[in-house]
Amino acid sequence: MPAASQLPDALIGRPFTVADALALGVPRDVLRGKRFRSPFRGVRVPAELEDTLATRCLAAALVLPKDAVFSHSTAARLHALPVPGAWPDEPLHVTTGSLGLRHSGMAVHAASELLHEVDDDHTLPIRTAAQCWAELATALAVDDLVVVGDAALRRGLVTDVELETLVSTLSGRRGVRRLVKALPLLEPATDSPMESRTRLLLVGAGLPRPVANRDVVVDGLWIARPDLSYPELRIAIEYEGDHHRSDRRQWLRDKTRRRLLEDAGWLVIEITSVDVYVTPIATVARVRAAIASRSPR
């Protein structure tokens, strides 16, 4: 039997079941101590392990049936997709064919014959990026689905053909109308969630759809790649996140890029999160005025 102050090597640095610990000779009073968390009944996690989503899922997997997969927003977060909200404020989403499965801290979904694929590139059983994107339609608005879809496309986790094919199989399913609306709004060239939201703000207000991250070449010389642009009007729209202000090197690159664009006759419009979330009407008006000023009469 191991000393009360130590654990067998097989249990160090990872979640484990109480049954496994007892079988290896760990006393019950040790397992009840402050050295461990108990996220689920019959499971212990060493207190020194950070309570990340991956750690919580590893702990949950110890008490789930073999057919269970992590799905919905949990799978999306494991894919590092930009799901709105914060993980600690929501349960783990699990899909399984086992009837009556219930665990505190989990949201259990019934398995669907149309949503059965599992991503084999992960150590945990999770939905593919395409499948969890479709599942998110039951909870997310269209704009949020576009933000997540843009990120999945940009990183090569899915293709637009895969998403279109999947949505075509979901006729009549809950949330499918949101997926149908989101599909034509997706843009794999978008570099960040806020670029997606800026584009959606403009398109939703009836403005022409800007192109994303298209190179600007003048006299054979590359000078910039604006976040969004109307190339035929030589209008560039740049989203300025906090790092553009706090990182001096980034700030200097931004200034140089803007100068080069303006010297080439481009109008540069800088957008911040305040412009998107707090004053969207004024932002749309600013872009609309720029388009009008550069459009042929």
Rank of each mutant, 00 (worst) to 15 (best):
M1S: 12
M1Y: 09
P2M: 12
L7P: 05
P8H: 04
A10T: 13
P15D: 02
P15F: 02
A23L: 11
G25E: 10
V26R: 01
V30Y: 03
K34M: 07
R35M: 03
P39V: 07
P39F: 03
A47C: 03
L49Y: 04
L49T: 12
E50D: 12
D51F: 00
T52R: 15
A54K: 15
C57F: 02
A59S: 06
D67F: 12
A75P: 02
A80G: 03
L81G: 03
A86P: 00
D89H: 15
L92S: 07
T96L: 10
L99A: 14
L101A: 09
A107C: 10
H109M: 12
A111N: 09
H116S: 11
E117C: 03
L124I: 13
T128D: 04
A129S: 05
Q131H: 10
V142K: 11
D144K: 15
G149C: 07
G149M: 09
A152G: 06
R154E: 02
V158I: 14
T159P: 08
S168Y: 02
T169L: 12
G172F: 04
R174M: 02
L183E: 02
P184F: 04
A189H: 06
D191C: 10
P193H: 10
M194W: 10
M194T: 08
M194C: 03
T198V: 14
R199P: 01
R199Q: 03
L201D: 00
V203F: 00
A212L: 08
D219K: 15
L228A: 05
S229V: 06
Y230P: 09
Y230F: 13
I237P: 05
R245Y: 02
R248H: 12
R253E: 00
K255Q: 09
T256L: 13
R257D: 00
L261I: 01
A264S: 07
E270K: 13
T272A: 00
D275N: 08
T279M: 04
T279E: 05
A285H: 07
I291C: 04
A292G: 05
S295Q: 12
